[in-house]
Amino acid sequence: MAERKRSTDGGSETEALIGNPPAAPDQSGTAGGALAERVASRDSEKRVTESPDSHTDATKSDKIATNQDVRND
């Protein structure tokens, strides 16, 4: 394997080419939990009116309304 040649002036050529990367996000997930809140409120209403064992999933319209990424169908 070839030897790596180090800079004699102490500068970083990589940093000069691409600059400093932006800071990474502190956490991942949805912002504010709007999607979860929207689905949970519909689920609790459904449990009262229909069946206590019901389960509600997020729909594409829920994701669009809360600005979540959705693929184009």
Rank of each mutant, 00 (worst) to 15 (best):
residue 63 K to E: 08
residue 60 K to S: 07
residue 62 D to N: 09
residue 40 A to Y: 08
residue 30 T to K: 10
residue 62 D to K: 02
residue 37 E to I: 00
residue 57 D to K: 15
residue 72 N to W: 14
residue 55 H to F: 09
residue 21 P to A: 14
residue 26 D to K: 12
residue 68 Q to P: 02
residue 34 A to C: 13
residue 17 L to Y: 10
residue 18 I to K: 03
residue 36 A to Q: 15
residue 70 V to F: 15
residue 39 V to T: 11
residue 33 G to Y: 09
residue 23 A to H: 00
residue 9 D to S: 07
residue 32 G to A: 12
residue 40 A to N: 15
residue 23 A to N: 13
residue 12 S to A: 07
residue 32 G to T: 03
residue 2 A to H: 10
residue 16 A to Q: 15
residue 49 T to V: 14
residue 49 T to W: 03
residue 5 K to A: 03
residue 18 I to C: 10
residue 11 G to S: 14
residue 70 V to P: 06
residue 6 R to K: 07
residue 38 R to V: 00
residue 20 N to Y: 12
residue 40 A to W: 09
residue 7 S to T: 01
residue 27 Q to E: 13
residue 41 S to W: 11
residue 72 N to S: 08
residue 38 R to C: 01
residue 73 D to E: 14
residue 26 D to N: 02
residue 22 P to L: 03
residue 7 S to C: 15
residue 48 V to S: 10
residue 50 E to Y: 04
residue 16 A to G: 13
residue 2 A to D: 11
residue 48 V to C: 02
residue 60 K to C: 12
residue 1 M to P: 06
residue 63 K to Y: 01
residue 35 L to Y: 05
residue 18 I to M: 10
residue 53 D to P: 00
residue 69 D to L: 09
residue 12 S to G: 14
residue 63 K to I: 09
residue 38 R to I: 06
residue 53 D to E: 04
residue 3 E to Q: 06
residue 37 E to F: 06
residue 49 T to I: 15
residue 16 A to C: 04
residue 42 R to F: 03
residue 31 A to W: 03
residue 28 S to Q: 14
residue 6 R to A: 00
residue 51 S to Y: 06
residue 3 E to Y: 00
residue 50 E to I: 09
residue 49 T to F: 02
residue 73 D to R: 06
residue 37 E to T: 12
residue 7 S to A: 11
residue 17 L to P: 01
residue 55 H to N: 11
residue 28 S to Y: 06
residue 49 T to G: 06
residue 10 G to F: 05
residue 71 R to I: 10
residue 39 V to S: 07
residue 32 G to H: 01
residue 4 R to T: 05
residue 33 G to K: 04
residue 7 S to R: 02
residue 49 T to E: 03
residue 49 T to N: 14
residue 13 E to C: 03
residue 12 S to V: 06
residue 23 A to K: 07
residue 39 V to A: 05
residue 29 G to N: 13
residue 63 K to P: 01
residue 35 L to I: 08
residue 46 K to A: 11
residue 60 K to A: 10
residue 45 E to T: 11
residue 16 A to L: 09
residue 9 D to Y: 04
residue 17 L to D: 04
residue 38 R to D: 15
residue 20 N to W: 15
residue 15 E to Q: 08
residue 22 P to Q: 07
